[in-house]
Simulated assay, not measured.
Amino acid sequence: MSSLVVLVGNPRGGSRTHLAAVAAAEAVGRRIGYEAPPEVVDLSGIGPHLFTPGPSPTVEVALELVAGAQVLLVASPTYKATYTGLLKAFLDRLPGGALAGTVALPLLVMGSPRHALAVELHLRPVLVELGALVPTPGLALLEAEIPDLDRILADWTDRVAAQVAAALERRATA
């Protein structure tokens, strides 16, 4: 079982979403005592395999990695006030309850503050539907804030690290 996994739903490789997601996972990981870097599932590289008929070993490995995470940070750019269709297509491949016992952290990167509620109204519910425990508010990150990412993440981890650690503790004793 992997400890900390990042799922990036941006269709473009090397995106700001990828950068922010990995940095956020590393920041939370440090605060809750995970020493290993997070494993990353970047859907930009496996997107074409999601839409081919029949099973794909690449997709199956990614699904197993995500479903086996203790902590899963799920990130997407905001498209049309929600997460990407690519992320939705991947999450639809997970069976109901696949994230039971997983502590999930939603993160959306957005161009406008008008979309700030999307992280709570759209991304959180799909993670909960899959069985994940989402113990903290998600991170709604404006693209304009990315140059100040270290400060933004320090503030965010100050707010969420204790809740994530407590959720992991409950998970361990359940």
Rank of each mutant, 00 (worst) to 15 (best):
A172I: 04
A27W: 10
E35W: 01
Y34W: 06
S44I: 01
L153E: 00
S56F: 09
G111Q: 09
R151Y: 10
A67C: 02
A67H: 00
V5D: 13
E145A: 15
E169R: 07
L105F: 03
P48W: 11
L105V: 03
Q70H: 10
V119I: 10
R16F: 06
R30T: 12
L50K: 07
L117W: 07
Q70M: 01
L168K: 01
P137M: 14
T157Y: 09
V41G: 05
L121H: 14
E39C: 03
P38A: 05
V59E: 04
P135F: 09
G96C: 08
L87W: 01
H115N: 14
V128G: 04
N10H: 12
L141Y: 10
V59P: 01
V109M: 04
S15E: 05
G14V: 03
D155H: 12
P77F: 13
P38C: 04
G97M: 13
A161L: 04
E39W: 08
L7Y: 02
A118Q: 06
V66F: 07
S44L: 02
A62S: 09
I46D: 02
S44N: 09
R114H: 13
L149P: 15
T78N: 14
Y34T: 07
S15V: 08
L130F: 14
E169H: 10
S3L: 14
A174P: 03
Y79F: 15
G68N: 02
S56A: 11
P135A: 08
M110W: 10
P95W: 09
G13P: 05
F51H: 05
V5I: 07
G33A: 00
G13Q: 03
G9V: 08
A172S: 12
G29E: 06
V126Y: 11
R171S: 08
P11W: 05
D42E: 02
A154T: 14
G13S: 11
A118N: 09
F90S: 01
A20G: 12
A167R: 00
A24F: 06
L123N: 03
L65E: 01
L141F: 10
P106S: 07
N10F: 07
T17W: 12
P48V: 05
L63N: 01
L153A: 02
A172R: 12
V28Y: 01
L130G: 08
L142E: 11
R159E: 15
G14M: 11
L4D: 01
L63T: 00
H18L: 14
D155F: 08
P55A: 15
A116I: 11
D92W: 11
T78W: 06
G9K: 06
L107G: 10
A75M: 04
G14N: 04
G131C: 09
P57H: 11
S3V: 06
A81C: 13
E129P: 07
G33D: 00
V103Q: 04
L94H: 06
A174G: 15
M1G: 08
S76V: 08
I46E: 03
L108N: 05
A75E: 07
A23S: 08
V128D: 06
L99Q: 10
T102C: 15
V40P: 00
V74G: 05
H18F: 04
Y83F: 15
Q163W: 12
S112Y: 12
T52Y: 04
V40Y: 06
S76E: 04
A69F: 03
L121Y: 13
G131W: 13
A21L: 02
V109S: 00
T58N: 06
L117P: 03
L168A: 02
A81G: 12
V59L: 10
G131A: 12
L108Y: 09
K88H: 15
M110Q: 15
